[in-house]
Design a protein around this nucleic acid. Structure first.
Lengths: 195, 195
DNA sequence: GTCTATAGCCCGATAGAC
DNA sequence: GTCTATCGGGCTATAGAC
């Protein structure tokens, strides 16, 4: 048994996690490759062999982060029927991740520094946020959400959620988000519900 | 009369405007000083004489941007009495600036890339956003805003506004924000109003 | 496939003429 | 006070041993 990372796939994962940690802490441009080498235990050569360049690495991190997020959202959606509930589990998921694996959310919010085209795409064009837009549109059709532009309604709901996350990540909000979730989700839903 | 910028203060202002334009377009780290020189018509030497280094320049841009924003907000506050109106003119101001001088808002939202301490302070700790928090707190006391944590209420209101701005700046929202203001401000207010 | 060593480039900041 | 020319440093990416 070798001392670490028998599996090349394990190495890639180590690089991704280490690089993400550093990118969210200091910013894409402020992290030199040698620092990722130190933090991950993987050599420069191996990193360039697998990712080609620094931008591709950032894009790979982004893809993996979004894939994980979508998978968790799909799990939590099982059994949820009403629009209100589908949006609520979205907010709860975002809040839980912000507390337990903040790098994921921080990366999603800060990756736009990187010039790679995959990183430049707006957050709302990603799969999980597209789902939210679809749920809101369906909610309008069903009369659960008040009439109006479904994109604006999605913007309002996610705006409340994401702004709360940002302030929590900056430690302006001192309590963990799951404790504040009740009030925040109530506010978010109030901004778009019908009646 | 010299060909340009008789006044040293005018030069500083040219540098600030040019650098802000470039920083929001490409990011702090992706803009080399020589590019600011080309864009502003002011030499490297003059820039370093007045600002000392690149980070201080970013901080000076931030201060000027926030000062301008606060001044405009104070003007619009004149004559507004209700909490609802004070928050509404905040949202309208943000929307107007996002359309007419987008660099101001973009800079406020993206300056945290720069490592200067003045740039790292959270947006909600700045004067205009502190004012919003105070108005919300007063609104709760007056019964206009529903009972609860005033910080969470301010987060919710500004969350709707800022998320809309972000999506408009990315051109996801295709109509100018002032045209969408009615619906958005209604959503934002619905998220926190009493009753 | 994986490493180390280094090439080559570009940036921020300064020195010194005017 | 303002300019141009340049230095030193640190970065990305590669070349070549193992």
């Amino acid at each position: 048994m070798k001392k670490r990372s028998i599996d090349p796939e394990k190495k890639i994962d180590q690089v991704i996690r280490a690089a993400r940690r550093l990118f969210v802490k200091k910013g894409f441009y402020a992290v030199p490759i040698p620092e990722i080498v130190k933090e991950s235990g993987v050599s420069v050569g191996a990193i360039y062999l697998h990712f080609g360049n620094k931008e591709n690495l950032a894009a790979a991190i982004y893809k993996k982060t979004l894939d994980d997020f979508l998978e968790q959202y799909n799990q939590r959606l099982l059994g949820q029927e009403s629009t209100r509930q589908k949006l609520q589990v979205f907010a709860e998921l975002v809040f839980d991740i912000a507390e337990n694996e903040p790098d994921m959310i921080k990366y999603m919010l800060s990756v736009r520094q990187c010039p790679h085209p995959d990183c430049a795409a707006p957050l709302c064009s990603t799969k999980p946020f597209q789902l939210v837009q679809e749920f809101v549109a369906a909610g309008i059709a069903a009369g659960e959400v008040k009439a109006g532009d479904h994109l604006l309604a999605a913007v309002s709901y996610t705006g409340v959620v994401l702004r709360a996350v940002e302030l929590r990540l900056q430690r302006v909000l001192e309590q963990p988000l799951p404790e504040l979730a009740g009030e925040l989700i109530d506010n978010a839903w109030s901004s778009i519900k019908s009646g």
